[in-house]
Design a protein around this nucleic acid. Structure first.
Lengths: 339, 339
DNA sequence: CAATGAAATGACAGCGCTGTCAAAGATAAT
DNA sequence: ATTATCTTTGACAGCGCTGTCATTTCATTG
């Protein structure tokens, strides 16, 4: 059957404790011994039993992915990335979907963590941006990695992956400006998400860079939903001072804007350019296909999970933070205005 | 800290073995004893350690969800359903995305199962419909539940959840016929998926029921992708003998057809009706919104996982199979022809 | 070369549970 | 009441690993 630590020990001619030391990357193992053990591990195709490790040790070998995100594509991509890091490092992944807006969200997560002996969690927005939540988690000695919008980590307490949304938003906006647009609307995502703030920042920066004034009345509140895209775009297009382009905080909003435009017989991109953000698969399935910003979600997730696991295992904390900038993808929903 | 079996035993005044018996629903425990134990369990908020159970016992307490499906919404819904069943029953869920077309797919799954001591797997198409794969899994004594297209299980070896796609397809087609359509095209999904066959069956049945001939030249091969929807619809609309309606085997294909129609300036639904299948969230975000068939994916998944877990635990195998019929959702992409 | 201390290794208990098998209790039959 | 039989319960080992602490090994120093 499956090889155990005893088999490896016998095969390598050492005690099981030494094998354990090697498997856990502990110091004070002679290089020659380590090699012997590793050879035995290889030839027996040994991998430690998670159950036994969990039972015997004080450390845990599971991490959890806590999320509350309606975007299935994003979640799946994240999950795949985390999964592949876990696989490599012999960790286990617990999936924990939950409702960030629930009052006792911390208690829920707390229970889950206690029940399952979880060593660390991967946090994406909105959790990664909830100071209270993060503090409480840290207080109970849970490791974590935070993936969040921004350029610099809010603190040094955990590894962080920063998504430079403002730069990406600046690029998109600049693209719009280069096409000749001057009256550009901004449909925001949920107000309390960093990403909304960052994206607005980039939007403004592009205007500044190009010496163009941001039109306050074209700044609309939204909430990352299709419906908010529909409503906001409708409102915008009913005004006398219509925009010639719309920057949508995500692809859902953009899809909603597209829908509204269609409803009101506004031709895209001839009469109105619309840009999204996120590069969801469906941004290639709308008519016209959406100009948007792409980020390598599963790569980010894998990177994040590795940072977390290394932190847990106390191995080389060289890279404690990392920054990604989503890249502009120009498709068919943006163009110069032809009227 | 967390209560152990010893605490419960002491609290209830019995041996730990008896507690174990109660926790595992074993026979030959006096009702009074069971009650005493359950009371102690309640008051200590005890839940058995998965790690210890796995280590000590011969049974496993994990199930895996093996999938290969590009539809993130479907996967997430499935996952959520399975997860909620696992939570209730104290099981653990392993997520295993993989490539069904890979040659050594069975070996991969085999390794995963051996490594992780998995008791059973939840299989969705295409895995649930691969006889070889199922046979091999069964041969290694892995329990499973199969979710598949059709009305009756192919055999009695495992619990099955059958999705009555043909009936749903018949409904959609009938809806189209009632609207007055006579030249209805069918864009198929992957040819080797049961669902494609079943849906075609229902399509034909509706024609038969209404005394209408199926037009062979309007039956197009596809593969469940957006692109195949675009290509197939384009081909159809270029012919002299255009259809007045298109039945698409899933929403992606329908979205593709919508795209093609837009490309060729065919008005939907005025000149052409298009129906999808699956009720993906984006079917509400297209223009116009898609008529489609809805199925309660996460409910199905939860039901499936419960069937599997009960089978594993050998509890009440009352419901060994179950049938769901997706229901017609009429939205804006289908209508009578007005020319 | 012996003494010293640090580094490397090993022996062994025990994590929380289940499996095995034996003991005790309950029930039925004589 | 006694024996036979079945049902219910418990004692104990051991799953595969880690933590603790004792022991061995090795390099260094006077």
């Amino acid at each position: 059957m499956k090889a155990t630590i005893n088999d490896v020990a016998k095969h390598a001619g050492v005690s099981i404790k030494t094998v354990s030391r090697v498997m856990n990357n502990e110091a004070s193992v002679r290089e020659k011994t380590r090699e012997k053990v590793m050879a035995a591990v290889q030839s027996l195709n040994y991998s430690p039993s998670l159950a036994a490790r969990n039972l015997a040790g004080s450390k845990a070998f599971s991490i959890a992915y806590i999320y509350d995100n309606p975007n299935a594509y994003y979640v799946i991509d994240m999950q795949n990335g985390i999964l592949s890091a876990c696989k490599q490092q012999g960790f286990e992944l617990l999936i924990h979907p939950c409702d960030a807006k629930s009052d006792n969200i911390f208690d829920e997560v707390h229970t889950m963590i206690k029940q399952s002996r979880v060593a660390g969690v991967v946090l994406t927005p909105p959790f990664s941006e909830m100071p209270d939540f993060v503090d409480k988690l840290l207080a109970m000695d849970i490791k974590m990695v935070r993936i969040m919008s921004g350029r610099t980590p809010p603190d040094q307490r955990t590894p962080c992956i920063m998504i430079n949304d403002s730069e990406a938003a600046r690029c998109i906006t600049d693209h719009l400006i280069q096409l000749g647009h001057r009256d550009i609307a901004f449909i925001a995502g949920d107000a309390h998400h960093n990403s909304t703030i960052e994206r607005l920042d980039g939007f403004k920066q592009a205007h500044l860079d190009n010496g163009i004034e941001v039109q306050k009345h074209l700044l609309i509140d939204g909430d990352y939903s299709f419906e908010s895209g529909v409503d906001s775009a409708k409102a915008l297009l009913e005004e006398n001072t219509k925009p010639t382009a719309i920057f949508s905080c995500n692809d859902e909003i953009a899809a909603g804007a597209l829908f509204a435009a269609r409803l009101m017989n506004v031709a895209i991109p001839e009469q109105l350019s619309i840009a999204g953000f996120e590069d969801s698969p469906f941004s290639r399935q709308t008519w016209p296909k959406l100009t948007t910003a792409h980020q390598p979600t599963s790569e980010i997730a894998e990177n994040a999970a590795n940072l977390l696991i290394n932190d847990i295992r106390k191995i080389s904390a060289t890279e404690y933070q990392h920054q990604y900038t989503p890249t502009l993808v120009v498709r068919d929903s943006t163009d110069t205005i032809c009227d």
